[in-house]
């Protein structure tokens, strides 16, 4: 009898302790984890995210989100005090934008103080180009290429999609939609600020922007061959150069982009190789 009772009591205790172990694993784990992987949520709610993204943000809201995010970038890197260069960049950028699908957006281009080589496309049509990138350009067609790539991101709503996807993934798509009809998603998007530009779009989005940029540049009368020329020059710089670090982090390698662009150039109808202009820069900066 004694020999029989001991396993039963042990079994009960083992069962209780097992239950405690399971509950501890589930309940205490989130509290004890110091590093939290948001991707874990993504796998759970990813099915809910699809179909609930950009479509519920109006153009006016997109523009407002873009202004908020741009304000953050401009807080980190102010506008260059060179009115001639600012106006020149706006004339070229706007001319290119007029040859795109969303020509009606209030396109604004800003030259910002930073030695890094980069450009930022905020939703709604605000494009910010660093002094480092501007100074590396050899002609106006190359400036058009830079503007066109960023315009393509805006037109395809790449960053808007990224921040909205992040908002939905973090908070749970259905919960937010049910609670606020999407308003909290927009607030989250604005709250993301300039940090959005430190994240990578997927490789396909960058290459799509490059492909569209060639069409925009050629349609505006420039030589689209200037676009791979910019990439080749960047590729010739050291990849670990501090001025290129973020560009390499957030974009495919310039050499790969140049190859892809040259392949696309051969497929362009209406812009034979070597056609279009590469005007000299009207305003140069150092």
């Amino acid at each position: 009898m004694t020999n029989f009772r001991l396993p039963v009591r042990f079994g009960v205790r083992f069962g209780v302790l097992s239950l405690i172990a399971i509950l501890t694993s589930v309940v205490c784990a989130p509290v004890s984890a110091q590093t939290f992987n948001l991707n874990a949520i993504g796998s759970v709610v990813s099915g809910l995210v699809e179909g609930a993204r950009v479509s519920n943000i109006s153009e006016a809201e997109e523009i407002q989100i873009g202004k908020e995010i741009s304000a953050r970038v401009l807080g980190a890197a102010p506008l260059v005090k060179n009115e001639a260069a600012q106006r020149y960049l706006n004339r070229v950028g706007t001319w290119v934008a007029l040859h795109t699908e969303r020509r009606q957006l209030p396109w604004r281009f800003g030259l910002i103080e930073s030695p890094t080589i980069n450009a930022f496309a905020a939703p709604g049509g605000i494009i910010l180009v660093t002094r480092g990138l501007y100074a590396s350009l050899e002609n106006e067609a190359e400036m058009a290429c830079v503007a066109a790539h960023e315009i393509a991101h805006v037109n395809m709503k790449h960053h808007l999609d990224l921040i909205q996807k992040g908002a939905l993934t973090q908070a749970g798509a259905k919960l937010l939609e049910m609670r606020s009809g999407g308003n909290e998603i927009k607030q989250f998007a604005i709250g993301q600020g300039a940090e959005i530009f430190t994240r990578s779009l997927d490789r396909g989005a960058e290459l799509d922007a490059d492909s569209k940029a060639l069409v925009y540049v050629a349609a505006a009368g420039y030589d689209p061959g200037a676009c791979p020329a910019v990439m080749k020059r960047l590729a010739a710089m050291k990849a670990d150069a501090s001025s290129l670090a973020m560009l390499y982090k957030t974009h495919p390698a310039p050499a790969d982009r140049a190859v892809r662009m040259e392949e696309d150039l051969g497929k362009l109808a209406g812009a034979p190789a070597g056609s279009g202009l590469r005007p000299e820069l009207a305003t140069k900066i150092k």
Binding site: A29, I41, V44, Q170, A171, G172
Partner: peptide, 16 residues
């Protein structure tokens, strides 16, 4: 429990 928190979707959902 601490180890599971690294990659467990359920704990992720609870956190969300």
């Amino acid at each position: 429990g601490a180890a599971m928190a690294q990659n467990n979707p359920l704990t992720g959902l609870l956190r969300s």
